[in-house]
């Protein structure tokens, strides 16, 4: 029987990530890929196509125009798929809360699996979020 746990187990084995980074979200999260924090040791790989991805990382402030593209990417990803919203700008508009062209509630556009606060979030925070997913799957009942 295909249970939620079995599906999720496949997801947490190696999380392949497609990045949708705007503005400083991109430059601030580069160290996660670099050798110092090295996300590949946890099985996190940045892939070049949404069709290979399990997770969508969204960072930086989002505009209605960029969210349309993010929705297209989300729809192209195979299930199970998960969205991680990183940084305060992505979640609430952050310091651009009073701008006329930023997204204020990201959950109106894509279903968000986990919010990672911070400006920007530390690499450790991202690994902690991924670890929480692993723990969560281990605790799921297999039924």
């Amino acid at each position: 029987m295909i249970t939620k746990k079995k599906v999720m187990k496949k997801f947490v084995k190696a999380i392949w990530v497609f990045n949708w980074f705007n503005s400083c979200g991109f430059s601030e999260l580069i160290p996660v890929v670099g050798s110092r924090w090295d996300m590949e040791r946890f099985g996190l790989v940045a892939v070049n196509s949404p069709r290979k991805a399990d997770a969508l990382f969204i960072a930086g402030y989002q505009t209605p125009k960029s969210m349309k593209r993010a929705q297209q990417i989300y729809e192209q990803m195979p299930s199970p798929k998960f969205v991680f919203a990183m940084g305060s700008c992505t979640m609430t508009g952050g310091m651009y809360w009073d701008s006329y062209n930023t997204v204020k509630r990201i959950e109106d556009y894509v279903p968000v699996f986990m919010y990672i606060p911070g400006c920007p979030p530390r690499p450790e925070a991202i690994f902690d979020a991924v670890h929480k997913v692993v723990v969560h799957v281990d605790e799921l009942p297999d039924e």
Binding site: T63, P64, K65, K68, Y100, N101
Partner: peptide
């Protein structure tokens, strides 16, 4: 160019 679906006044 940038403001898709914008229906307010020119910002």
């Amino acid at each position: 160019l940038f403001l898709e679906d914008w229906d307010g006044p020119p910002p």
